[in-house]
Amino acid sequence: MEILIQQLFNGLTIGSVYSLVALGLTLVYGILHIPNFAHGALYMLGGYITLSMMTLYGVNYWIAMFVSIIVVGLLGVLLERFVFRLLREAPPLHDKIAAIGILLFLEAFAQFVWGADFHTMTSPYGQVVNILGLTFTLQRLLIIVSAIAVMVLLYLFLKKTYTGSTIIAMSQSREGASLVGININKVAMLTFMISGGLAAIASSLASPINLVFPGMGHLVILKAFVIIILGGMGSIPGAIVGGYILGFSESLGATYISNDYKDIIAFILLVIILTVKPTGLFAKGER
């Protein structure tokens, strides 16, 4: 029983990270229909920037994370402006390839600047706490709380502000949005910025309990794709729910099935979903 609760808590932690990454991915997909394979590299970069700010400049964890959000967010804007905008009318194959190119570059770049080694990030919240028989580091609690806070803020932004509502409008219909005078280019850049920012938050939160290395985004991005297919490509609640579902399945799978194969769970899940429903769960009607 204790193991179960412990694992559920772990699932909540991992799920929070997955949800944040998947949110960024789903926002971009919802608006521009780009499966952004480079999103994992943005995640990785976010981790490195936070780490460097802390180790090189001795900056506080939160400020380091803030810098990371800004830098990765701006990088997202650059990608939209100088890559994906040029490919908006191109066949769907092209933006996928372009994203892969960016991914390869960013990984090589990280390796060039920071080396191929694994780094640990020490957060100021490494204390072990004991609540109701659960043992965990404060950082894990922090991940859950911060992730939920970010999601609530994002929700408020999308629902309650004008700028946010333009993003929603455009995800529903690009033509419609442009008819009512929404500047598509601006919204696209903004979306990429938020998406990059979310990736940076996710990796900055997760790095203290994982490791920072050039390939750290690989599995995360693949799983994020699984999540948004699970939750419906472009769906925001879907990304959140899907993230937690995967988090729980993995932490339970690791305990009760096999730790070696826990990473495979996500992909088996995806294979099953797409086998049963080739257009993903929650496809938007028929063509």
Partner: peptide
Amino acid sequence: LIALRTKEHFFAIYTLCVGYIIYLV
């Protein structure tokens, strides 16, 4: 047989995951 029921993005993501499963196995 299964993968080709999906299209475009789904196919790319599906095959990416299949590739990863093969690697992991």
